[in-house]
């Protein structure tokens, strides 16, 4: 088990070594980079907005229904909703969701390229296939992930606000006060900082599993599943480490 894990980590490190090298043609790299930002990032905006809106709404409802202590002021609902969204949901939970959407997309795309010999074709042309295929994906994901996190923060809080407006279970003015109370700007930087690591984990691990596929379409499916599982576990592990370092 340990031997196998070390072997996989060694292969991953070797692949990343090949990935982080100077692109053969910068012009091509930037073209691919922009394409990946669009494919992996911009195309994820709708799902990020939908999920964040609903989760923000659910958090607000749960806070209102469960914080019933007379010792706590009513605006605690707003404070708790905001903190949950800023500190964990918009970075960590969003990363877990994206590891499913983006991670499986990357792993299956690269895996299909592997089994149809497109990667071999690049190698035969003398092109560093890891650099050509993977680097734009990692760069695109790391660049755009903070944007998705900001979208998620905004729409998550909006979701909580919408509940107040639509159902009236909490007063709008109290929620607004709570959302603004004791605001710590550092929490946003903390979430954005974490998201960079998560973006790297999602894109690099999915690329690794896709790139190292051996066999046919069945193995591409397995690689896609492995990519999602492993990157999800790594996201949670890194979340613990970063949280302890930055907040502990």
């Amino acid at each position: 088990m340990l031997h196998n894990s070390l072997k996989i980590f060694g292969s991953y490190a070797h692949l990343m070594g090949r990935t982080f090298s100077r692109p053969d043609r910068w012009k091509e790299f930037f073209k691919c980079y922009i394409d990946e930002i669009y494919k992996l990032g911009v195309n994820s905006i709708p799902i990020v907005i939908i999920i964040s809106l609903f989760i923000g709404a659910v958090i607000a409802i749960q806070m209102q229904l469960n914080i019933v202590s007379p010792l706590l002021p009513k605006y605690t609902v707003g404070v708790a909703t905001r903190e949950i969204i800023l500190l964990e949901f918009s970075s960590t939970m969003l990363a877990l969701i994206l590891s499913g959407k983006v991670g499986s997309n990357i792993a299956s795309e690269i895996g299909a390229m592997r089994v149809t010999e497109q990667i071999d074709a690049l190698e035969i042309m003398g092109i560093n296939s890891a650099n050509y295929i993977i680097l734009p994906k990692i760069a695109g994901m790391v660049t755009f992930m903070p944007v998705l996190v900001i979208f998620s923060m905004a729409t998550g809080i909006l979701g909580g606000y919408a509940i107040a407006v639509l159902t009236g279970i909490i007063s709008i003015s109290i929620l607004t006060y709570g959302i603004q109370a004791f605001f710590n700007e550092f929490y946003i930087w903390y979430a954005l900082f974490k998201s960079l690591f998560f973006a790297y984990i999602i894109s690099s691990i999915a690329s690794f599993y896709g790139y190292t596929v051996k066999g046919g379409s069945l193995q591409v499916g397995k690689a896609s599943t492995n990519a999602v599982v492993v990157s999800s576990v790594m996201i949670l592990l890194v979340d613990v480490i970063i949280t302890q370092i930055m907040m502990g």
């Binding site: 149809t116 071999d120 074709a121 190698e123 035969i124 042309m125 003398g126």
Partner: peptide
């Protein structure tokens, strides 16, 4: 490799 061309079994077109 710039002097090599290869035709793959499944064509391997992008």
């Amino acid at each position: 490799r710039k002097e090599i061309g290869m035709l793959f079994q499944g064509s391997a077109l992008f």
